[in-house]
Design a protein around this nucleic acid. Sequence first.
RNA 1: GUCCCCGUCGUCUAGCCGGGCCUAGGACAUCGGCCUUUCACGCCGGUAACAGGGGUUCAAAUCCCCUCGGGGACGCCA
Length: 462
Amino acid sequence: MSVKTRFAPSPTGSLHLGGARTAIFNWLFARHHGGEFVLRIEDTDQVRSTEESLNEIYDSMKWLGLDWDGTPIKQSERLELYNEYANKMLESGKAYKCYVTPEQLADKRKEAQDKGEFFQYKREWADENSGPDKPYSIRILTPDTGEIEVHDILRGKISFDAGEIDDFIILRMDGFATYNFAVVIDDALMELTHIIRGDDHLINTPKQQLIYDALGFNLPEFAHVSMIHGADKTKLSKRHGATSVGAYRDDGYLPEAMINYLTRLGWSFGDEEIFSKDELVEKFTLDNVGKSPAVFNPEKLQWLNAHYIKEKPAKEIAELILPLMNGKGYKAEDDDKLLKIIEQLRERSKTLNDFVSQSSYFYNDVNEYEEKARNKFLTEDTRPVLQALSGKLSSVENFTYDNIQKALEEVVEELDLKFGKIAQPMRVALTGGTVSPGIGEVIEILGKEVVISRIQKAIDSI
RNA sequence: GUCCCCGUCGUCUAGCCGGGCCUAGGACAUCGGCCUUUCACGCCGGUAACAGGGGUUCAAAUCCCCUCGGGGACGCCA
């Protein structure tokens, strides 16, 4: 039997980390088995669903490289279908009309709560204000006794007491299907074989199975993956800071790091930590998915990101950071200089944005010096060092790294100083601060003219 | 409160199913050191966990029971 999975986001916000991980698991599982992976948009909540969110979700999926098969299905376009099936259940006596209004229900619920009782809907209320023209919702007729057994690939058998389950609504008074109903109709009609979703849906599963039964649909396999938690061990949400895929993209994270991290969160393959997408497709199975919730750890994500930055071809990094740099007004170009800068900065960058912030002095004049740096390295004592450097460097004909390095060493020898004594003042003069790649590399990239003028500027500022 | 799920270093996890190789392994973070031209990178080393209690067994992180702890769900939201 071939495999078919789905990701079913509701377009009420951006794609968050938890959703992304379920999407990844579904995608990985389908691709691993050579099956299909489809998208279904759960947009029946007309009020909160927006086109903007939908596009953002599509963008994030594409960015992560999670391609889907076929055209996404939108639940808002299948309303009639749900109606049809709800009526089928009505006809077969598996469901009934309920005239209790939402207001009445709210009152009853509150009353029970005030008494400290557990609220449960009673089907005797159904006809309380019935009438030919009165609006009604459709409720499923659920068994009062017995057990409902759910099979979960990750957790095994889980049984629920049928008596705990209300005659829940499948079609609202406004004619819209409820979540649990639409999900089942779609999952069944789309012929999905495996439903991989968040742990929070585990409780919905017995309810959904009741619908499968009532309609005579075949049950798919279920796998409920545990949630992603924040540092406080509660379900990850906006309170925990950046939780959308888009936010990480904007912060300069690479999709390969994101995929690697999110997959590894709750899934493992021995001691391995680094996985390319292809390796993941090859190695991912549900067997190695853990059951306990995982705390999202930004530091480890960052470490992975740094790792992928270190091994990504400079050319590709250039394409990614060029727009960022020019967005800051750097006037950078896709040239040899950029490539050299990338090679120097990649070991020092944890995100793409780090490239931008660390390369400012390569593209902009140095107009200020960090105060501490200036006080320590641009002084009367270092003036002769800078002068010597300026003189020596001006005489370098062929401004290559080797020649520059040779010139620097000559100055070290002539002044009888340690290398650090000339490197730091130089660094401050050229970059405005005390942190940069090797000074020889910086000089080479900057070029003779700029170097000489910046040294002069530094001397003048003393 | 009720129902369901979960419980190995601070965090992600290996090991658990099919007890012994576990003096519990790896990774991130952290601490110390080395390298050094600053910052990084890299390398070497350290600290750090089987939630607790009972069983079963020659032997338990691994099997069973209880307790405790954490989370999730309890909508005419999805």
